[in-house]
């Protein structure tokens, strides 16, 4: 959704539309996180009247899907791939291998025994 996208590209890594989209979702989630947590608290609180809780649940479901944390997926910062990402290195397994063999990742070395 273009309204969440930054007006000027603010990414320094590999960019394609999927990376930009994921980045927008992360920023949208960050902006809406407090509101979401407040609504979640109202929904989970059994001491509040049922009507309040139901409206809170409705509000939560009607928020934009970009503000949902489940929409966020780690992507490779070198190739933008969405699968097989080592979250510690933010890289896909193949890019991780290339970087590790080239010695660009401190503390990583090929196992041998």
């Amino acid at each position: 959704m273009s309204m969440f996208r930054a007006k000027k590209l603010d990414l320094g890594c590999f960019t394609n539309i999927r990376v930009i989209r994921d980045h927008s979702k992360r920023k949208a989630y960050e902006a809406a996180e407090a509101e979401r947590q407040a609504l979640r608290y109202i929904v989970r609180n059994t001491t509040l009247p049922a009507r309040t809780r139901a409206t809170a649940q409705l509000q939560l479901t009607q928020m934009h899907c970009y503000t949902r944390p489940t929409q966020i997926r780690n992507r490779c910062i070198l190739g933008g791939k969405g699968r097989g990402i080592f979250s510690d290195f933010k890289m896909s397994r193949y890019n991780f291998r290339l970087q590790a063999l080239a010695g660009n990742l401190p503390g990583v070395k090929k196992a041998s025994w």
Binding site: L9, D10, L11, G12, C13, V19, D22, H23, R26, K27, Y29, E30, P69, I72, N74, I77, K90
Partner: peptide, 8 residues
């Protein structure tokens, strides 16, 4: 979460 990708 928002600081996952390196910024320009």
């Amino acid at each position: 979460l928002a600081s996952y990708y390196p910024r320009k």
